[in-house]
């Protein structure tokens, strides 16, 4: 299974993602933002960080970078594109995913473990995953997902809401929503469910010594679904 992680200037979770993908058996390559082409891959990952300093708006400049044209082509032809944190922000900026990520409701950066409920398993990312609730980790200042009423309706009708913030038992409530995201949304798909954007970082929770190892479920399952 081949994966490619795009490095933008200011990306800072690129190495962590590389480590995680390789740990679970992906043959990963790192791709520089100024490259025009992406080598043949099964999965493209837009990692977390502060691409182009997040100037203007989070992810907006990355959304116009040279490499993005190839990402769009790949995504539009059905290729799997995963955007984590800043990667999710970039995906909304390119229009591959609807909505925007606003500043956290309490106006500050939040770094902590959160629980998320998997809402849909009819897709390559979560099909066959053995858990309903994962303990993942967030670290962001702009993770407050927002979209129009129509867009939200469409997300719901098409089962595009991938994961939602909840407690360890899968219960959703404002108190488990760390950033004020609409409908507790932590991650969404596009209509075809080949594109996934999510705020939590599965790559930071991949071993018992870290704050959780539920990222293992995510990556193990992901590579299994490719086989």
């Amino acid at each position: 299974m081949k994966s490619a992680v795009i490095i933008f200037p200011g990306s800072n979770c690129d190495r962590d993602m590389d480590v995680a993908l390789k740990k679970f058996g992906f043959k990963n390559q790192m791709i520089w933002h100024n490259d025009m082409e992406i080598p043949k891959s099964d999965l493209i990952v837009l990692p977390g960080g502060f691409s182009y300093g997040d100037y203007l708006r989070c992810g907006s400049i990355a959304g116009k970078s040279k490499i993005i044209k190839s990402v769009l082509e790949f995504a539009n032809s059905g290729g799997l594109v995963l955007g984590i944190c800043n990667g999710f922000q970039i995906l909304t900026e390119t229009g591959l995913l609807p909505g925007v990520l606003l500043q956290n409701k309490y106006q500050k950066f939040i770094c902590k473990n959160v629980h998320v409920k998997i809402n849909d398993k009819e897709n390559k990312y979560f099909k066959n995953i053995k858990k309903e609730v994962l303990e993942l980790h967030i670290a962001h200042n702009e993770g407050n997902y927002f979209c129009s009423d129509d867009e939200l309706k469409s997300l719901i009708n098409n089962n595009q809401i991938a994961i939602t913030y909840c407690n360890e038992n899968g219960k959703e409530a404002d108190s488990y929503n760390p950033n004020g995201a609409l409908s507790n949304i932590a991650g969404i798909f596009n209509k075809n469910k080949n594109i996934l954007g999510m705020m939590p970082h599965p790559e930071r929770v991949i071993d018992k010594s870290l704050s959780s190892d539920d990222g293992n479920f995510f990556f193990e399952n992901l590579i299994e679904n490719f086989k």
């Binding site: 979770c13 962590d16 480590v19 977390g48 950066f109 939040i110 770094c111 670290a139 790559e203 870290l210």
Partner: peptide, 13 residues
Amino acid sequence: WQQYDHTVMGDTI
């Protein structure tokens, strides 16, 4: 300290 990213680089134990 919740406002500081303390887990990036994946080695904070």
